[in-house]
Amino acid sequence: MGILSGNPKEEPMHFGEINSVWQFSMAAKGSVSCYQAYLNHAGDKDLKKILDDLIDQAKLEIKECDTLLTDNGIPPAPALPERPSVKLEEIPPGARFTDPEIAAKLAADTSIGLVACSQAMGQAIREDIGALFAKYHLTKAALGTRILELNKEKGWLVPPPLQLKRSESE
């Protein structure tokens, strides 16, 4: 039997796995805080539904990552305080994030999350950790598709320059 060939949950985590899980948990905690604030600013009901789903996913990631860390004797990052609810009308217009701004930030965050999941999967030698991040990757891909569809449907998508016609020299 080779090294680390037993039950993955009984194998030690290597430093890369520890760092990935810890950072992912910390990022999820930041996302919950930020997305709760965005909920106060959002006016579109479809955008609010995606924000709720992103918050629920981030809370699941926090729970699972923090449990993994704790089970391996590593203290997780501290939790951030819950944000209070505020009525949209109470936020001055100049201080308010607009729905297109929020949706663009959600798209960027989801894209960054996909890269983080891929990196964690690639460096994992414990199958359970690789599988955990594969699960998160799949969920983020599905949420990213919903965000893209929302941005297109609402007219909020700002595409990069599009190549509509090839030059004659090619």
Rank of each mutant, 00 (worst) to 15 (best):
I55T: 02
G6I: 09
A134M: 13
A42M: 10
K105G: 04
L68H: 04
A124W: 08
L162R: 03
I3N: 09
T70C: 01
G43K: 11
K135S: 14
D66H: 02
N40A: 08
M13L: 15
I18E: 11
G130Q: 12
A120C: 08
Y38G: 00
L47F: 05
D109C: 00
Q163M: 10
T110V: 09
I18D: 00
A116I: 02
S118W: 03
K49T: 14
S111Q: 10
L132W: 10
C117P: 00
Y35M: 12
D109Y: 04
L47R: 07
R166F: 12
A134Q: 14
H137W: 10
N72Y: 10
N7W: 06
H137G: 02
I62E: 04
S25P: 03
S85H: 09
K87D: 15
H41D: 12
I62G: 09
L148T: 15
R83N: 10
P75Y: 01
R146N: 15
P100A: 01
S25E: 10
M26R: 14
P159A: 09
G73F: 09
G122S: 10
L4I: 00
A141P: 07
E82F: 01
Q36L: 12
H137Y: 14
N72T: 02
K59P: 00
F97H: 12
V158S: 10
A116L: 11
L4V: 02
Q57N: 10
